[in-house]
């Protein structure tokens, strides 16, 4: 999509829409009768990235890597333990979402919305479509029913549902349609930032493309900025302008999509790509598995969290935690050996 690059150049003025700095979220591990804290799960551990206006940042990683927690911290669905989430609001002011009091956060909510993974769990089964899609308007001050009804009809049409469905309840809809309803609700307040947490992974394969296309169309029409969280590399590659790879609560690599997929700089990124089963029997041999398992974020290894599984690990990797650094323009990697390694990405065939 060409418009993506245009948007990133003409709308940023150097300031990203969202700038996440040193974000941390630790969950205490409690034990015993008195619930004493005996340790912490470092779900998100010093995460840094930014999102430019109008682009899609894909956040990819395996289960438990902290990508979902990161996305929820950004929307303050959970309170971060530390770090800053700088957001450039519509008013032009930059605010730190991580520190914002609840009342001010509520005022900011209309600007950022979320699409959930499971469309069966994210719609209140006791509310009909009108109530679901119009509730954001109602709680944010649009009390006139007819005004809301007009807007709901418009939104339903926008996401490809018939406005006549307004009186129906969620139980009347299939997974794909429900996800459209979730999207309509998210768009009700004309948000600027939409966080999509695995929005297609619960859908049937034949329905995923419909929802992905819809998300791309809406971005173009409404100039939305997406944070797209997923575990599926193919989906992330398809929809993202830039991609961030997470591993055990930390960012391993961030780069523009093509750069990341063609010339990955972090051994984990390369391994992840090599592990993806390609839907073509003729490229069979490329599936190179990574040894071992993902470490627990409650008890991560020393130094670089990836070193026990990394084929390129050296002594320094066991001792020092690598920092995220820009080794090429817009290409950030957290690896001690990033500059010297030649890693295989996914070439065009």
């Amino acid at each position: 999509m060409t418009s993506n690059t245009e948007q990133t150049t003409n709308s940023t003025n150097g300031h990203p829409l969202l700038d996440v700095k040193g974000l941390k979220k630790y969950f205490p591990i409690k034990k015993g009768f008195f619930k004493k804290t005996v340790g912490h799960v470092r779900a998100v551990d010093d995460v840094n990235f930014f999102i430019r206006e109008g682009e899609t940042l894909g956040l990819v990683g395996e289960s438990g890597c902290g990508k979902t927690t990161t996305s929820r911290c950004i929307l303050r669905a959970v309170d971060p333990t530390g770090g800053r989430v700088l957001y450039r609001a519509k008013s032009g002011a930059t605010v730190d979402i991580a520190q914002l009091p609840a009342s001010e956060m509520r005022r900011l909510r209309p600007e950022m919305q979320m699409i959930f993974q499971d469309p069966f769990a994210s719609l209140n089964p006791r509310m009909n479509l009108f109530d679901i899609v119009s509730e954001p308007m109602f709680v944010n001050g649009i009390k006139s029913r007819s005004e809301r009804a007009d807007r709901v009809a418009e939104l339903l049409q926008l996401v490809g549902l018939r406005p006549e469905y307004m009186q129906r309840f969620p139980h009347a809809f299939s997974g794909g349609q429900r996800q459209r309803i979730v999207i309509a609700r998210a768009l009700a307040l004309k948000p600027r930032l939409v966080v999509a947490d695995e929005p297609v992974s619960a859908l049937d394969v034949s329905v995923q493309a419909q929802v992905l296309n819809l998300l791309l169309d809406l971005q173009e029409q409404l100039k939305l900025t997406y944070l797209f969280v997923a575990h599926d590399l193919s989906v992330v590659k398809h929809i993202s302008t830039r991609v961030a790879v997470m591993y055990v609560g930390k960012i391993a690599e961030i780069a523009p999509t093509d750069a990341l997929f063609n010339t990955p700089k972090h051994p984990y990124t390369a391994a992840l790509m090599a592990a993806v089963p390609v839907a073509d029997p003729r490229v069979r041999s490329k599936m190179i598995p990574l040894q071992g398992d993902v470490p627990s974020p409650a008890n991560p290894p020393s130094g670089c969290y990836f070193h026990p599984r990394c084929p390129f690990a050296e002594a320094v990797c066991k001792q020092e935690t690598p920092q995220l650094q820009e080794i090429e323009p817009n290409h950030f990697v957290a690896c001690h050996r990033a500059k010297e390694l030649e890693l295989d990405g996914i070439s065009a065939n």
Binding site: N4, S206, V207, K237, F261
Partner: peptide
């Protein structure tokens, strides 16, 4: 086969879809 995104497909392109649901 046409509707699934793959790591080799072009990013940002629209995928051909199968209409409706199962």
């Amino acid at each position: 086969l046409k509707s699934i995104p793959t790591v080799t497909s072009e990013s940002g392109s629209r995928l051909p879809t199968i209409e409706g649901a199962i």
